[in-house]
Write a protein that binds this DNA or RNA. Structure first.
Lengths: 157, 157
DNA sequence: TATTGTTATACTCTATAACTATA
DNA sequence: TATAGTTATAGAGTATAACAATA
């Protein structure tokens, strides 16, 4: 009995998805935040912690902790940056790469399972609608951030 | 460039929604977990912490901490249970009720904003599709839980 | 004996601020 | 002077286990 058209449905589904996906690595050293980091490295390749902090939208300090744990569990290593001796390149180990390959398969399987009940038409309409909803939300957030920016400016004459 | 049909889109959207909605009470005493609890009380009425623990799918100990913070901030009170002297009824204060009414308005506004670009046909297709995706996921999770249950049973002959 | 809530303890994610080493 | 990463500190969410009061 959602009182809203899509918001309540999206929130419920988000919650369930998070629970379901974290069930896969429950009990082990991996967590949602660590897997998120691995996912970025898997897709975008070895990169600095700064770059990861931007991609994950968290502080550099936070990345330090996540990488520490992933080094401890053997999923990544800190490789020296070829030209900048301040920086490190967070790089997947064999274990890390294997883990991500397995997760990608599970991910694709889950995606296919989720839309199993939908017709082709419905699938393309839903995909397009989700893209437009996302774009809409991003534009709303950008507008809110800009407004907050000006009001912060106003507070610093 | 989502590699999956709906999963990547849903995960991205979830993340943005969470960030956007938590922006509203950023800096104040409220947090996502506390607002979630308030939401349940607002909709289902005064109830015990056990009941909240079940509704939120967290441990009773966790509820104690959330209620402590919400009592401190003046959003709820612990009222005595009429018949069970062990239990308390978590109840909204005037501030708590006002806060939730305002949030419900914002919630409805956001919902309307999100689907502003969609046609009526698209809206109903998306709503129906999300319901079926959710049902599908719930059934997958129930099956996984059942299987885990049997294997746990198997380990205890 | 079972249930409600709490105290005790611990781990994870997250943030800010100050600091070191390097650019 | 600015940037990359770390140490120090803190708050929040979450969990398990042991315990009190009450059913």
């Amino acid at each position: 009995m959602p009182s809203s058209l899509v918001l309540d449905r999206l929130l419920l589904l988000s919650d369930l998805l998070q629970r379901d996906m974290s069930r896969a690595f429950d009990g082990g050293p991996l967590t949602t935040a660590r897997v998120h980091l691995l996912w970025v490295v898997h897709h975008a390749g070895p990169q600095t912690q700064q770059s990861l902090a931007t991609a994950l939208d968290v502080t550099p300090r936070n990345v330090t902790g996540l990488v520490d744990a992933l080094v401890e569990s053997g999923h990544v290593v800190r490789a020296p940056h070829p030209t900048d001796r301040r920086a490190v390149l967070v790089t997947l180990t064999g274990l890390g790469a294997d883990t991500m390959r397995r997760m990608a398969v599970d991910h694709a399987q889950l995606d296919a399972d989720l839309v199993a009940d939908l017709t082709d038409d419905e699938r393309s309409i839903v995909a397009g609608a989700l893209d437009r909803i996302t774009a809409r939300l991003q534009s709303l957030m950008a507008a809110a951030a800009a407004e907050e920016g000006t009001s912060v400016e106003a507070e610093r004459p």
